[in-house]
């Protein structure tokens, strides 16, 4: 069981923390890939990650990438919710591989004519506010910590073989003052782009599909 809030708070000084686990490392370098948003709650962050990962995969890997506008034009209802490998109840997320809707993902891969899908879900977001009080007792509220729980998978089709599974706690803190060099992301955009770079680098490093 994920004690998501506590994990997020303990990781609040890191802009992102990636944990892609590679179950397989052999990828066809001549293959085609599409990044797929499978949870529609946080549209802005989802879109940045999907676009950014697509661009980075195209720039850094040998794979042919189907871009987001093409995914949207081929699958008219995209983006839409696709059941992910987890159970969500209240504010808790529990991994559950049996829940993943592999049939819908396989149909996506077929329609998009790709060998690989990188699918991701962001089911939960946590926001906190910072309340400061001056010596005269006036209080001021400002944006504090915002954290997202992220699940991503790289899946091969039509074999339905899972290449990698990832979990991450992404977060940003506007105007954070940090001692040391590791400054957290200041915006959702910076957070999403930083994470996309990390995820793509991990995929390339572990599968050897880099240019």
């Amino acid at each position: 069981m994920k004690k998501f809030f506590l994990v997020l708070l303990s990781l609040s000084f890191f802009s992102c923390y990636s944990t892609h686990k590679f179950l397989n490392t052999d990828i066809n370098p001549g293959g085609r890939i599409a990044v797929v948003i499978a949870e529609t709650k946080y549209d802005d962050v989802n879109t940045i990650i999907a676009n950014s990962m697509s661009e980075l995969l195209e720039a850094k890997s040998k794979l042919t990438v189907v871009h987001q506008h093409k995914v949207k034009s081929i699958i008219g209802t995209y983006p839409e919710r696709i059941r992910g490998p987890y159970k969500h109840l209240g504010d808790e997320i529990e991994p559950d591989n049996k829940r993943r809707d592999m049939d819908t993902l396989a149909a996506y891969a077929k329609k998009l004519n790709v060998n690989y899908l990188y699918v991701f879900w962001i089911p939960i977001c946590v926001e906190s506010k910072i309340i400061t009080t001056d010596p005269y007792g006036n209080t001021r509220e400002s944006a504090g910590f915002t954290g997202y729980y992220y699940i991503g998978e790289l899946i091969e089709f039509p074999s339905r073989r899972i290449i990698a599974q990832g979990e991450a706690e992404l977060s940003y803190i506007p105007n954070a003052t940090v001692i040391g060099s590791r400054k957290p992301a200041a915006s959702s955009r910076e957070m999403a782009i930083n994470f996309s770079e990390l995820a793509v680098d991990e995929i390339i490093k572990n599968t050897g599909i880099g240019n």
């Binding site: 709650k41 919710r81 159970k87 969500h88 109840l89 209240g90 089911p123």
Partner: peptide, 8 residues
């Protein structure tokens, strides 16, 4: 809604 909590 289409949220997991409502569905459950």
């Amino acid at each position: 809604t289409n949220g997991d909590n409502d569905i459950n």
